[in-house]
């Protein structure tokens, strides 16, 4: 792993039963960069994210993170229960929780400060006492990003955070991600090609294997601008 490389995938393969979602995947991600992960549905974007987050283990090959790195995973909201009685602050606070299940574990003031800072970074300081069911789609996604920030993760992976957002909410989200790049490494999977390749430093096109593009011009030239994958 070179000095600036923070994530490295080497010949990674993962199969769900008989079907291989990704095969022979190789790529490097540089520190404090924003990488867009694009590709068709079922191409393996979420599988790569789940491997990165430790939810899946590769069948073959290996991936490595730079020593001391941690992942903040922002999943798609398919399993998210909006009726769950939890406020924005409580949800973001849960990002600071101790990994070890310790008896009588309680949040300290330092945890609350960290959660409030994360909420501020995504511009939700006015909403910290709101229930999550009182947030708009865009606000909710920002709150989930704040939870990942509160966890002190230096790598944030976002699985289609801009799906089902209107143009304005998506633009707010992209602005936040650009700001986060100053001290975080960001990976974002998205179907909004034009928007994400404009803010990305590099693009990974995932369709079972990975093709890396190091400039937005190259992506537009090879895949065509405005295409919907």
């Amino acid at each position: 792993m070179t000095k600036d490389t923070i994530i490295q995938f080497h010949n990674v393969r993962f199969c769900y039963d008989e079907v291989c979602a990704i095969n022979n995947v190789n790529f490097n991600i540089l520190e404090n960069s924003l990488t867009a992960i694009i590709g068709p549905n079922g191409g393996g974007k979420s599988t790569i994210f789940k491997i990165l987050s430790g939810l899946l283990k590769p069948d073959d090959g290996h991936f490595s993170l730079r020593k001391g790195s941690t992942i903040g995973y922002v999943s798609q909201f398919t399993d998210f229960d909006l009726s769950f009685p939890i406020t924005v602050l409580e949800m973001v606070l849960s990002g600071t929780i101790c990994k070890k299940v310790k008896p009588f574990y309680r949040y300290k003031k330092s945890h609350r400060d960290k959660a409030r800072n994360a909420i501020k970074r995504v511009g939700l300081e006015m909403y910290e006492d709101r229930g999550i069911n009182q947030l708009s789609g865009g606000e909710l996604k920002r709150a989930v990003i704040a939870r990942a920030l509160a966890s002190d993760a230096n790598i944030i992976v976002l699985d289609e955070p801009d799906s089902s957002l209107d143009v304005e909410a998506a633009a707010d989200l992209y602005r936040i991600l650009i700001n986060l790049k100053s001290d975080k490494t960001i990976l974002i999977a998205s179907h909004h090609l034009d928007e994400v390749i404009d803010i990305a430093d590099s693009v990974l096109y995932v369709k079972s294997t990975v093709t890396k593009f190091s400039s937005t011009e190259e992506v537009k030239e090879k895949l065509g601008g405005g295409i919907i994958i």
């Binding site: 987050s53 995973y73 999943s75 990994k99 070890k100």
Partner: peptide, 13 residues
């Protein structure tokens, strides 16, 4: 209870 997937990704048992 709230988000089992995230808890797993955080490495919680």
């Amino acid at each position: 209870m709230f988000d089992e997937e995230y808890a797993k990704a955080r490495g919680i048992n």
